[in-house]
């Protein structure tokens, strides 16, 4: 058996309640908007790879690449 930890479900993630950016639960401050309020209660996700070219990034007003919760 491999000892490499699977990233699935072992790492838990929370979403910034202001900008919806998703971070691992041990992060204290949102790297995008600076907020310190997070919620574990989020659903759905948009992964923005290229905010310049993505139409979806424009809809959700994401300017930084990364993962955003759809509902918080």
């Amino acid at each position: 058996m491999s000892s490499r930890r699977s990233r699935s479900k072992k790492v838990t993630y929370k979403a910034c309640t202001r900008c919806r950016y998703i971070v691992p639960s041990d992060v204290k401050q949102c790297p995008v908007c600076g907020s310190t309020t997070f919620t574990d209660n989020w659903k759905g996700m948009v992964i923005v790879i290229d905010p310049e070219k993505s139409e979806i990034a424009k809809i959700i007003e994401a300017k930084v690449p990364g993962r955003y919760a759809i509902r918080v």
């Binding site: 996700m45 992964i47 290229d50 979806i56």
Partner: peptide, 18 residues
């Protein structure tokens, strides 16, 4: 040329790739 990926909040078993 893949710009974003969506995991919908209400639909199970599907994702969208832009």
């Amino acid at each position: 040329g893949i710009y974003s990926i969506v995991v919908p909040a209400d639909i199970k078993g599907y994702i969208v790739v832009e």
